[in-house]
Design a protein around this nucleic acid. Structure first.
Lengths: 223, 223
DNA sequence: CAAAATTAAATTTGATCATATTATCTGATT
DNA sequence: AATCAGATAATATGATCAAATTTAATTTTG
C-alpha cells in the first residue's frame, strides 16, 4: 500500500532511484545509519518504501562514493573510520577546502554572506538547544553553500566524497562531547570573506578543520 | 548469442554487474568511448552482451565517480573537459599525487621497483611502436601500481576519480601529438624512490603531471 | 556426559531477468 | 507553429534462481 516513492502528486520528473539515493545519503551522512551498521537491500526496500531496482542503484552510487563499503561476501556496511582514514581525511581536507574558500572569496556577493550568516545563526541555535540533528544538517549546509560559491565542480565532487566519509562519525562525536563543546571558525571565515581577504579566510577554514578533526580523534580515543 | 556475461564456466563468484562495471570503465578510461559520446543502456546491453540490471548499476557507479554525467533528460554522456576542469584537475593532481609518492617511497621494496621498471619498459616499447592502446594501459598501470604502494585507500579512491576524468582525453592527445612526443619522468621518479628520497620523487612526479597537463592543454587549444 | 566442532536443513538476502510502465523524441498532419 | 500518434529508450516491478548466513541437529572428543 501507501505512497510508493514515486511521482504520485504530479509529474515531478525526479526518478525513484534519485529519491532513494538522496534519502539513503542523508541517512548515512547524518549518522542515522551508524558507522559499522550493515545495510541490506530488503531492509531499505521496506524502510524507504521503494522498489528493488532503485534501491540497488542507490547502493551502487553510494558505494562508489565511499559512503558504503562491500564487506567481501555480499554484505554492505557504513564504514567506520580507522586512524589511517582520519589521517588521510585530514590531509585531503586541508589541501582542498582552503582552496575552495579562496576561490569562493573571489566570487562571493554580499547576499551570499547574508545567507551564510543566517545558516550560521541557525547552527548556533542548534548548538545552544542541543539539537544534534539540526546541528549536523546546518553544519553540512553551511560548508556546502560556501563551497558552491567556488564554482569548481570537480573539487566539489571530491569534497562531497570526503564529507560522506567523516560526516557519519560526527553524530557519535556530538553524543560524546556534547554540542556545547563544538566550536567552529565560521564567523572568522565569513568576516575574512566579506573583507575579500582570501588568505585569512583560508586560514580560518584550516583552523575549523583542525578543530573538527581533533574532536573526531578525541572521540575515537575514548571509545 | 551465447556467452552472456556471467559465470558459465565455473563458480567465479564475481557478479555480472561487477564485470560490466569493469568493462565499461575500461571503455571510458582508455577513450574507446570518446568524450562527448552518449551512452545508452540499450546500446551497452548489446555491446557488452549483458542484462539490463547489471548495466544500469554499472552506469550509476560510473556516474557517481564522474566518469559519466547525466545530461538533464535521460541522456548520459562521457564528459568532455572544460578549461575549468583541466585547471581543477591540475590543482588536485599536484596536491595529491606527490603525497602518494612520498608515502609510497617510505614503503617501497626493491621488488616493487623491479615491477615498476618492467612496466615502464613496456611503456617505452608502446611509445616506440606507436601502440596507443598499449601506451594508455601501461601508463595507467604504472601510476596505479605506484600509488597502491602508499596504502592510502581514500587518497587512492580520489586519484582514481581524477584518472576517470582526464584519462578519456589522453587518447585524443596521443592522436594529436603522436606517441613519440609523449615524455614522462618515470625513470627519475623510480631512481629517487629507490634512493629513498621522497622529496625528489615527489618533485619528479610533479614534473610528470605538469608535462601531462601541458600536453592536454596543447591538444585542447588545437581542436 | 557435556562442550566443542561439524554438518545439514531452513531462512534470509542478493543477483538477474522478463515484463510492464512511463517518459522522451520524431516527424507527419493540421 | 502546435498537436498528436508512433517509435524508442529509460524506469520500475515482481518473479525466479543462487548464494550465504543462521539455526538446528548430529557427531566427535575431552
Amino acid at each position: 500500500m501507501g505512497s510508493r516513492m514515486k511521482n504520485e502528486i504530479s509529474h515531478l520528473k525526479v526518478p525513484a532511484h534519485e529519491l532513494v539515493y538522496q534519502n539513503l545519503r542523508e541517512l548515512i551522512l547524518f549518522g542515522e545509519i551508524a558507522p559499522g551498521q550493515t545495510v541490506t537491500i530488503k531492509g531499505l526496500i521496506e524502510q524507504l518504501n521503494a522498489g528493488m531496482t532503485p534501491v540497488r542503484e542507490a547502493i551502487r552510487r553510494l558505494s562508489a562514493e565511499g559512503a558504503l563499503t562491500f564487506q567481501g561476501n555480499r554484505r554492505v556496511i557504513v564504514p567506520t573510520l580507522s586512524e589511517q582514514n582520519v589521517s588521510e581525511l585530514n590531509f585531503l581536507r586541508r589541501a582542498l577546502e582552503p582552496k575552495l574558500i579562496a576561490m569562493a572569496t573571489k566570487r562571493v556577493k554580499s547576499e551570499d554572506i547574508e545567507d551564510l550568516r543566517r545558516i550560521d545563526r541557525e547552527l548556533d541555535n542548534a548548538i545552544k538547544s542541543g539539537d544534534i540533528n539540526a546541528y549536523l544538517r546546518q553544519n553540512y549546509w553551511f560548508h556546502k553553500t560556501l563551497y558552491k560559491l567556488a564554482e569548481a565542480p570537480i573539487l566539489d565532487q571530491v569534497v562531497d566524497i570526503l564529507w560522506l566519509r567523516y560526516g557519519p562519525s560526527l553524530r557519535v562525536v556530538c553524543g560524546r562531547i556534547g554540542t556545547l563543546n563544538l566550536t567552529d571558525q565560521h564567523k572568522e571565515t565569513l568576516n575574512a570573506m566579506s573583507d575579500g581577504d582570501a588568505q585569512r579566510a583560508a586560514d580560518a577554514i584550516r583552523a575549523d578543520i583542525t578543530q573538527g578533526i581533533d574532536q573526531i580523534k578525541y572521540s575515537m580515543r575514548n571509545s
